[in-house]
Amino acid sequence: MNQKRTFGSILTILGIVGIIYGALGFLHMAGVSLSKVNSIVPFAVGLIFFFAGINLVKATGDRA
């Protein structure tokens, strides 16, 4: 597997984790105690990581 695709996969996974953490903080679930304003930050960073990872995986071509 290509290094760019690996990094894109890692970014995507980190983005998913950030989105879930931000959503749990917004809903005050699972012991995550963030205010509604503070939960926007991990959610936004998660979205950025998620879309950057997806675009990196899509834009990288396979070489056989």
Rank of each mutant, 00 (worst) to 15 (best):
I48V: 15
N38W: 12
I13T: 12
A52Y: 06
A64R: 13
I40P: 00
D62K: 15
F43R: 01
I16M: 08
V41H: 06
G25I: 05
L47P: 06
R63G: 11
I20V: 15
G15M: 07
L24P: 00
S39N: 00
G31N: 01
R5P: 02
F51I: 13
N2I: 07
A23Y: 11
A23Q: 10
K36F: 13
R63Q: 15
K4C: 08
A64C: 07
K58Y: 11
L24V: 05
N2R: 03
D62S: 10
T6L: 14
L56R: 06
V17Y: 12
M1V: 09
K36A: 12
A59Y: 09
Y21N: 01
T6M: 13
L14N: 05
M1N: 07
F43G: 08
S39F: 06
I54V: 15
L34S: 04
A52E: 10
L11T: 00
A44N: 02
F50C: 01
M1D: 10
G15T: 07
I48C: 12
G18S: 08
L11P: 01
T6E: 10
I13F: 11
D62I: 14
I19V: 15
V45T: 13
Q3W: 10
K4I: 09
A64Q: 13
S35M: 05
F51R: 01
P42K: 00
Q3C: 04
F49T: 03
G15Q: 03
A44H: 02
K4N: 14
I40F: 09
T60P: 04
S33T: 13
L27F: 13
V57I: 15
L34W: 05
R63D: 14
G18C: 04
A59G: 15
G53K: 06
H28G: 04
G31H: 04
A64T: 11
I40D: 02
S9F: 11
F50M: 08
H28Q: 15
F7A: 15
H28M: 09
I48Q: 05
S39D: 01
Q3G: 06
S9N: 12
S39W: 05
F26V: 06
A59N: 14
R63S: 14
A64D: 14
K4S: 12
H28N: 13
F50D: 03
F51Y: 13
G46R: 06
D62W: 08
F7R: 10
A30K: 03
G8H: 08
F43I: 10
L56Y: 02
G31R: 02
L47K: 03
V37I: 14
N38T: 06
I19G: 07
A23S: 15
G18T: 06
L56A: 11
L11Q: 04
I10S: 06
I10V: 15
A52F: 10
S35F: 01
G31V: 03
G18R: 03
G31D: 01
G46I: 07
A52W: 08
N38S: 09
A52H: 03
P42N: 04
A52S: 13
F7P: 00
S39L: 04
L34I: 01
T60M: 07
G15L: 07
F49S: 11
S35C: 00
M29C: 01
G61A: 12
G31Q: 00
S35I: 04
S35A: 02
K36I: 11
A59C: 04
